[in-house]
């Protein structure tokens, strides 16, 4: 801190300070945490291939939802309803699949996500209600729907094609959950960075009035990002159902905060105008690695929560400080 005043005098230092460190916080943080666990836990199985691939597999649904959240936050909105969308989608898929087969089940799962996204999107874009309140309400509403869908019962998913495709299987030696993650990240990144739609999302989040004046269909953008988020939460529900070979009303209940933390740590602004799909991926892997490493360190559950909270706080603090300049 004491070196700060000398920055202006030292051209090299001032050049370094001009580089937006915030953009790289998530990568540096990820690397630092990885190295720390690699050293501390070298005898506890952290570095085994099985454990590292577990981290990627476990975070797949979080990463998928984080992609949707990047779109929503970048457009200046938020989607809190993903927590219960996951369960509604997984249960709809499981029940429909057991009665009408796999294709119908997949359609029901994704369809449930899209439908919830449409409800959110129409209320936000055309009734012009704040997304925070709309999705807070639908979070509770659809949690209730998930509970009543099967009267709290867990539904087994026995279709082995489905469970292979969505959670337990592999293709060319690579687990299906990794395929889903890779495909979703590439597609998300390309749409976000390379298409007109992506630019419109950012422009809407940056300054909705200016975007509207320059001819961007702001309501349609808002509707679209919430539908994307709902659809991806639906996909996350299918991945959970495939992985657990069952669906339950509690699926995804605890994921909302992890998704938001992953996205923010990954460099997406909470109030719109800036986002990063790759950052969200690394943020999500960082959350998964943190859970994994803290458990393997043998910490008590309370200590795990405290340390995880402190690290997230540190990461967010660094990225927000940069933005205030």
């Amino acid at each position: 801190m004491s070196s700060a005043p000398s920055n202006a005098a030292n051209p090299a230092m001032s050049m370094i300070s001009r580089i937006n460190i915030q953009q790289y916080v998530v990568y540096v943080g990820f690397l630092a945490i990885f190295l720390f666990f690699a050293v501390v836990l070298k005898d506890s199985g952290f570095l085994t291939v099985r454990n590292l691939s577990n981290i990627v597999l476990q975070t797949a649904p979080i990463t998928i939802m984080a992609i949707g959240m990047v779109f929503v936050l970048s457009a200046g909105e938020i989607d809190l309803s993903i927590g219960s969308t996951v369960a509604v989608a997984a249960l709809s898929a499981a029940v429909t699949m057991n009665a009408y087969g796999m294709i119908a089940g997949i359609a029901a799962g994704i369809g449930a996500g899209v439908a919830i996204g449409l409800v959110n999107g129409l209320l936000v874009a055309y009734v012009r209600l704040p997304s925070f309140l709309v999705t807070l309400a639908t979070l509770g509403l659809f949690a209730g729907v998930a509970r009543s869908l099967t009267n709290l019962r867990s539904i087994p998913v026995t279709d082995s094609t489905f469970t292979g495709f969505f959670g337990s299987g592999s293709l060319l030696g690579i687990p299906s959950l990794i395929w889903w993650t890779v495909i979703a990240i590439i597609a998300g990144h390309l749409i976000f960075r390379e298409t007109k739609f992506g630019a419109h999302v950012l422009a809407t989040g940056d300054n909705a009035r200016a975007a509207s004046v320059s001819g961007i269909p702001v309501p349609r953008i808002r509707l679209a990002v919430l539908v994307i988020s709902g659809a991806l939460a639906g996909l996350a529900g299918l991945l959970y159902a495939g992985r657990l070979q069952a669906a339950k009303y509690t699926l995804g209940e605890t994921d909302l905060m992890t998704v938001i933390a992953a996205v923010i740590v990954g460099g997406t602004l909470l109030n719109g105008g800036k986002g990063s799909i790759i950052g969200a991926l690394v943020g999500s892997l960082m959350m998964g690695m943190l859970n994994n490493g803290l458990i393997l360190m043998g910490l008590s559950v309370s200590d795990q929560m405290i340390v995880r909270g402190l690290i997230i706080l540190a990461a967010v603090a660094v990225s927000l400080r940069e933005k205030l300049r």
Binding site: Y240, L244, A246, T250, L251, E253, T254, G298, V301
Partner: peptide
């Protein structure tokens, strides 16, 4: 190792 799943099956 000690863990707490918070009633979450996943």
């Amino acid at each position: 190792v000690t863990t707490d799943a918070g009633f979450d099956a996943a």
